[in-house]
Amino acid sequence: MVESIIETNGLTRSYGDICALKPLDLQVPEGEWLSVMGHSGSGKSTLMNLVGGLDRPTAGSLRVGGEDLLALSEDGLARFRREFVGIIFQQHHMVPYLTAVENVMLAQYFHSVPDEAEARSALERVGLGHRLKNRPGELSGGEQQRVCIARAIINSPKLLLGDEPTGNLDHKSTVMVMELLKELRAEERFTVIMVTHNQDVAAWGDRTIYLDDGVLVREERMKS
């Protein structure tokens, strides 16, 4: 029996009258790769933000890695994010005035202390050893996303969240990024939750859940 890293019970998030996430019960066992699919507005990003400690639910309980996220203060959530979670966004969000290696060091700095050598080797690991000193403007979409991956895993998170990480990439880059994630997961053994509306991308996971209008409608286990 593998322990659940994420446990939700009646998890709800509403914005005023609009209910983005209807009461949801979800268990994610440690080490699983979970794909979350649905149309835009189906509540999949909301789920990811809640699990990543970026947003607070309006009702229900939410435990991630044994921690009750509802009980944490704002700074407590920040600590949870930097120590427990790595996040990759659809739009490759890097600090525009910092170089690739400095963007990775930023995550180290917020976490504890920066260590340039370690940041460099992380970038080499994602195949960007030759672009350390380039700023986001000088990097392609796929390269930027790989910097974001390096930054997301630099603090050895237990949980890696991807919000349509390949949404803006061409097919070749998508495959490259997914391959990289798979490789890294094999080494670091983190849990992955990936939000996508691309069936091919979802197929990289162990299990796919389908959300529609904030409700879990279907669940599918991959056989690999």
Binding site: G52, L54, E74, D75, A78, R79, R81, R82, E83, V85, I87, F89, H93, M94, V95, P96, L106, A107, Y109, F110, H111, R151, N155
Partner: peptide
């Protein structure tokens, strides 16, 4: 966007 990103990466208010 930059501040939001820093927060997402885990910066607290003091940082």
């Amino acid at each position: 966007p930059e501040i939001a990103l820093m927060k997402a990466v885990g910066a607290d208010r003091l940082q």
